[in-house]
Each structure stands twice: as structure tokens, then as C-alpha cells.
Amino acid sequence: MVHSFPNSSPPFVVLLMISFPICCSSSWPWTSGTLPSGDLPIRLRTDLDAVTAASNDYGNLVHEPPSAVLYPSSVQEIVDLIKLSNNCSTPFTVAARGRGHSVRGQAMAGGGVVVEMAALSRNGGGIRVSWSPSLGYYADVGGEEMWADVLRVGLEHGLAPVSWTDYLYLTVGGTLSNAGISGQSFLHGPQISNVLELDVITGQGDFLTCSKDNNSELFFAVLGGLGQFGIITRARIVLQKAPTRAKWMRLIYNDFTMFTRDQEHLISTNINGPNYVEGSLITDQSPPNNWRSSFYSPSDQANILSLLLAKQGLLYSIEVVKYYDNTNIDTIDQEVELLVKDLNFIPAFVFKKDVSFVDFLTRVGRGGEKEEETQTGSWKWKHIHG
């Protein structure tokens, strides 16, 4: 039996994929504002504002205007749209759009229909946290939901997903259609490795539940399938007990061999190893503090920039994090010291912070020019619009 927590959100409605081309035709089989689908009213917008918004994405490299934009109020409307495309004498392309963070037009449908999945979030989408003896803790999540909200709801129960992306204001369906990779992937795999079950609308308009044991070919095709094998309408995501704080460090190198060797050492540490490891380059074109996060103080930045000038404008950085809570609060400093003791970073260039688990996970995107602040309980989330 599955036990749902009291006060949990109701079951979500839908999960998005980045792109789902039904066919290659760009012809448009109607001109009115309603699809010719019999007695089912499907709301379409063909006005300039809707079409323009659906013609661009974060990459700003591809621009393909659709003929219409669908704002669905239910999964059934998306099913009917796909069936209509299959049955229409002049088929059309359908693409599902999340937060518009694709970079090469994957969420566009030139001459076809773009489905704005965020409309489902305004009509009963949600996140439900549950537990079962066989599966443990998990969350059923609508793909239009952002990972930041999955974190928020999970932490209400002391739980969190095990794998993330660096930027949490992306949709669940959007990252699952790619892979969902971040500094936790060496430990837990990408986000697609931490999904238990999916509901999927296929290219024929069939609605199927799949997992590694049920309709497995569809399950593994859709996860990381770039939207080419179906539209996911539910994702069941693995949860575990959430830590409360993070020891967050950045280590600076001027030797590439030492830099890569230490990365390999860190991700191979099996006992008391790190929870997050990422490497990056620092150049005079990518200053220490950038869009990813404002980690360094002004004096730290000045020191790094001076070193950068002395080292022909190229340095390397390892970002390493170790989580903790009340169970190891008395030993965490010793654990961190042991973790970095044998590493070969420049001795004077190790920088440390002690932050909350939430502050670390939501570090990317803070301070953007366009922010929408919302208050939920004791949480303040800054939603950054790309």
C-alpha cells in the first residue's frame, strides 16, 4: 500500500518534454481559433504575443513561429491534439515547451502547434510525496513543475531528490528529456537514473505507464530521448533523507594534470567522500564570480585575478561540497580536512563557505535582472526567467 503524507499536494496533471515532432509538414489545416476536433473545445491562441513567445528560446539562435499555441487545461487535450495530427489529412508538428530553456529550437514547431505546459500548472498541477515498503520515499511530479519546487515540497517532509542540475528553475520534464547532469552525477547518476516510473503519451496518442519492468523500451527511450519518443505526463522520482547544511569549497590550480588527477581522486573516494564535484576553467573572459554564483569576496576575486594575470590568463577550479546535518556536525570539519589533505591545489588558494543545503542548491541564477519573488512558508524563492 502507498501511504501519502497528509497535507501533500494533490496528484499532478502533466509532465513535459522539450520537443515532440509528430511529422515534418509545416502546413496548417485550419484558420480558426479552435481545433476541428469534434465536441472537445481546445483553447488555441494565434495572436502575435503568443506566437512570438513560442518562436524563441534561451539560445536565441533559432526562430520558428508556430501557427498556434495551445494552453491545455488537461492531459486529454494534448492527447487529442496528437491524435488529430495523426488523423489529419495534412499533419502538423507538435512541440511541448516548458520554461523555454532549450538552446537550438527544440521546443519550437514551425507552422505547427506549441503546447505551453506551464498552463497545466495553473490548472491543478502539483507534487505529491509518498512512501511504500517496496519503493521507499518518492515524489510524483508534473513535468511542468520546476525542480526548485520539488526541493521545497520534499523538504517539507525532510526529503529531497538525490540528483540535480546546477540551475533548479528548469522543469522536471525538460531535464529528464536530456539527462539532468550536475556535480552529484558521479555519485548517483544523472536525474534520468533516479526515476521509478513514467506516464507517457506516445506519437500515436496512446497513454501508457512505463518503468524498467513495464513497457521498458518506451521507458528507457523517453528518458534522455530529447522528446522524440513521447510526451511524459508523470515522473516518479526517488527521494532520500535531506541533509541540512553544506561545506562548500573551491580549490584553484595552475596545472592541468594536477587538476584532472585530483578530480579523479575525489570522485573515486568511497569512504566519507564528497557529495558534489565539478571542475571549471577561469580565464580573463570568465571571471571568478559569474552567472553561476557569486562565491568569492572582492578581496578573493582580486587575488585570483592577480594570479590569473601571472599564469597567462588560465586557471582551473575544482568545486567540492560535503553535506552534513546534526548526526555529523561535530566531525564534519575533520572529514573535510581529510578529504582535501592530499590534493595538489595552490595552498593559498582554497576558499570555503558553510551554507544551508537550500542555499547551495539554489546558488545559480540569484541576482538575475528579472526576478519574481514568491513567499512560501519560511522560504523565499527567486524565480529567474531565462
Rank of each mutant, 00 (worst) to 15 (best):
I181F: 09
F20S: 07
P65M: 13
G158H: 07
S185I: 02
H385G: 00
E371K: 15
C23P: 00
N87D: 06
V150M: 09
D206A: 14
V13Y: 00
G110H: 10
L307N: 03
Q285L: 15
E278Q: 15
D359W: 04
V115D: 01
P10H: 07
P21T: 04
T327Y: 05
T165E: 00
N344R: 15
W164A: 13
F256S: 09
T52Y: 02
R234L: 13
T257M: 11
L120T: 11
V350C: 06
R99W: 02
R97C: 10
Q191T: 08
S294K: 15
W248E: 01
R234F: 02
F295K: 12
P161N: 04
P66R: 07
E197C: 08
L223R: 13
T46E: 02
L35D: 00
S293W: 05
R234C: 04
R99I: 08
G224D: 01
M146N: 05
G124I: 07
N289K: 10
P133L: 07
P161Y: 04
L305R: 14
S32L: 11
W164Q: 09
H101L: 10
W291Q: 11
K247I: 09
L81P: 00
L315V: 09
E337I: 08
R363D: 00
M108V: 03
G112M: 07
T202D: 06
L170C: 09
Q263T: 03
T269Q: 14
E145M: 15
W291K: 13
R363H: 07
L48V: 10
D199L: 03
V2R: 12
G38S: 08
L307H: 04
P72R: 09
F220H: 13
D57T: 06
L155Q: 14
Y58K: 12
V336T: 08
V150Q: 11
A302Y: 07
I282Q: 05
V364L: 05
G189E: 00
V195I: 15
R97I: 10
S74I: 05
G224R: 05
N86T: 07
E337F: 05
G173R: 13
I271R: 15
E264Q: 14
F186M: 08
R99L: 14
D359K: 15
A221C: 04
E264L: 13
R245C: 05
V2Q: 07
Y253G: 03
W164P: 00
G367N: 12
A109K: 04
A50L: 11
G100E: 07
A148V: 12
G126Y: 07
V150D: 03
V358A: 13
P65R: 15
K83D: 00
S293H: 12
D359A: 15
C88Y: 01
G189C: 04
L48I: 09
N215Y: 06
R152L: 15
L343C: 08
